[in-house]
Structures are given as structure tokens and as C-alpha cells.
């Protein structure tokens, strides 16, 4: 399968001596929905900055669909669309103008730029705001405008740096649906986010970066399998006076109709349900106490740096 992004021994030391990246390697395959996660200051935005030429690397190599970002930068940049973490458009310009200008910077003729601008503004629910100065848009609209701008040249690789930060849940879900749609149509996506449920539900593969090194790089499924135990919160229809004794499971009574049960990787939910049924405890609903990826993430980033 074609490699969409190849990063080899990438390093970055800032002028103040801070070593943000210590020679990282990872690859993203074409068609992937890839999560690049890490705590604040881990090196995610530096990595993205280097890929899209906003940060000068200290060492290493970056290729986008086989095009080196140094020796073949025009072709590498054509493959790439970036949605940065902070708003970086002209507040005085209108969304339609912002998109048409961006298309122009990629050499797209005016007529095609207008057609695509209309398509993406409609797709992202901004067509009615096309002539509104962008400073008057809401936070969610500004995020969607940056996504539309990143897509105007129809890149094969889209990088989103915390695209849903500060966006309400309804808008976040509609953005997820849109990203899944373009991913299904063939666009490779790299996502950084602090919402780990977002990464877990959207991404197929993952790299976790911490203190400038890759702490984990695997498939989401493989990573989640590393979770040794999960804590489930179970709402029951039966009123309980004390925590039920469930052989092999640790169980805590939260309130009369809620219990928390620890399920080890070797155990199954079927066993748990069987034990609850034996005691005539009827389950109303079941959920994870914390996001599964969050548990692993906290564990991985808590490790001391190399």
C-alpha cells in the first residue's frame, strides 16, 4: 500500500535549546485515519509544523506521498492540506474570498476555485455566511472554514490539529461524520486531539508522542487490547442495599441502583451478566467508567521520558 506520510529520524531543537523532537519515525498509509496523540508540549504541533513547512526541522526526512518536503516541496505541498490549531485566516476577509485566494495559491483557475468554494462552503454549512466578514463567524464556523480552506485544492493527505477544540458536541459530531465521509472517499487523515473518545471512534492507527519520542505506534485495535482491565458502570433496575458478591469480579456499590465492576482482560462480560442474572439483578444500562484509550494514554504518557 502507498505510504502517504513517511517520517524518518525527525528532530527539532528550537533556538532556546528546547529539544521538541528527538529523532522520531513513523509512517501513515494511504487511506488511513491516523491519530497523533500526546500531552501538551509533547511535539505534535512541531511535527505537523515541519510537515507543512511552518517549522524548520533540525534533522531527518519527511516525505508526503513519496515527495520529499525539501527537495520536491511544491509537489509535497500539493498533496497536503492542513487545519492548524489556531485560527490563521484574515479576519477582515469573507469566507468565499479566503477560499478563492487559497485556491489561487495552489494555481487553481478562478472558475474552478469558485465551484469548489461553493461546494465546500455548502458541504460545511457556511454557504449562507460566504459574504460575512470571517471575524463575525462563531468559533465552530471558523473551524469549519479552516477545514474548507484546507480541502480547496483537494489534498490526498489532510492533517487536522485539534479541529474540534472548543466546538459543541452537535457540531463535533457533524464534523466527525464529514471527516469519515472524506476518509471513505480516499483522503488520508491525520488527527491530533485531546478528546480521546474522538480518536478512538474515528482512527484506525495511532502514534502517541511524549517528550519528543514515539511512545507507541500501532493499530487502535492492538493498542486497546493492551488494556488489562476495564471498569464498567452498571445501572440496575433492582434496588441494592450493598454491593453484590460476584465471584472473580471486584464490585463496588456507587448508589442503590449503580455498581462499578472491574473486568479483567481474561474475563468476559457474559460471565458477569450470568452472575448478575443468578442474583436476579436486572441490568438497565452499561458503560465504561473512563474512555478505554484514555486509560492507556494516561499510562503511556506517565512513563518517565527516555
Amino acid at each position: 500500500m502507498t505510504v502517504a506520510l513517511s517520517i524518518k529520524q525527525l528532530s527539532k531543537t528550537y533556538n532556546n535549546g528546547f529539544q521538541a523532537l528527538k529523532g522520531i519515525d513513523f509512517e501513515v498509509k494511504e487511506g488511513d485515519f491516523f491519530a497523533l496523540l500526546g500531552p501538551n508540549g509533547a511535539g505534535k504541533s512541531t511535527t505537523i509544523g515541519i510537515i507543512c513547512s511552518l517549522v524548520n526541522k533540525t534533522g531527518g526526512q519527511v516525505e508526503v506521498f513519496g515527495y520529499d518536503i525539501d527537495s520536491d516541496f511544491p509537489m509535497a505541498k500539493k498533496q497536503l492540506g492542513v487545519v492548524p490549531q489556531e485560527f490563521n485566516f484574515n479576519n477582515f476577509e469573507k469566507p468565499l474570498d479566503i477560499l478563492i485566494h487559497q485556491a489561487g495559491y495552489y494555481g487553481i483557475p478562478r472558475k474552478l476555485a469558485e465551484e469548489r468554494s461553493e461546494f465546500y462552503l455548502k458541504k460545511l454549512g457556511l454557504w449562507d455566511k460566504r459574504d460575512t466578514p470571517s471575524r463575525n463567524l462563531s468559533g465552530g464556523m471558523k473551524r469549519r472554514l479552516m477545514i474548507a480552506r484546507a480541502l480547496i485544492h483537494e489534498p490526498k493527505l489532510l492533517i487536522l490539529d485539534e479541529p474540534t477544540a472548543g466546538v459543541d458536541i452537535e457540531m463535533r459530531r457533524s464534523m466527525w461524520a464529514f471527516l469519515q465521509e472524506i476518509n471513505a472517499q480516499g483522503t488520508t487523515i491525520i488527527l491530533t486531539t485531546h478528546y480521546l473518545e474522538e480518536a478512538e471512534s474515528l482512527c484506525k492507527n495511532i502514534a502517541i508522542i511524549n517528550h519528543g519520542v514515539i511512545a507507541e505506534n500501532t493499530s487502535m485495535r492492538t493498542l486497546l487490547q493492551k488494556l488489562h482491565q476495564m471498569v464498567f458502570v452498571i445501572d440496575v433496575k433492582t434496588s441494592l442495599e450493598h454491593a453484590p458478591v460476584l465471584s472473580g469480579f471486584d464490585c463496588v456499590l456507587v448508589d442503590k441502583q449503580t455498581i462499578e465492576v472491574v473486568v479483567q482482560q481474561s474475563q468476559s462480560l457474559n460471565e458477569l451478566f450470568a452472575l448478575l442474572s443468578e442474583q436476579q439483578i436486572e441490568v438497565a444500562s452499561l458503560r465504561n467508567k473512563t474512555n478505554r484509550l484514555e486509560e492507556l494514554f494516561v499510562d503511556l504518557v506517565a512513563k518517565p521520558s527516555a
Binding site: 513547512s53 505541498k77 487559497q102 494555481g107 480552506r149
Partner: peptide
């Protein structure tokens, strides 16, 4: 102004020489 508002990045990430 483009630097201050950071929209100079629109040009810097593009393939424009």
C-alpha cells in the same frame, strides 16, 4: 498584518514559490 494574524501561513504552506 498577515504575520500578526498568522494568515501569512496560507502562503507558506502552499506550493507558491
Amino acid at each position: 498584518g498577515a504575520k500578526f494574524q498568522r494568515f501569512v501561513e496560507e502562503l507558506l504552506v502552499s506550493p507558491t514559490p
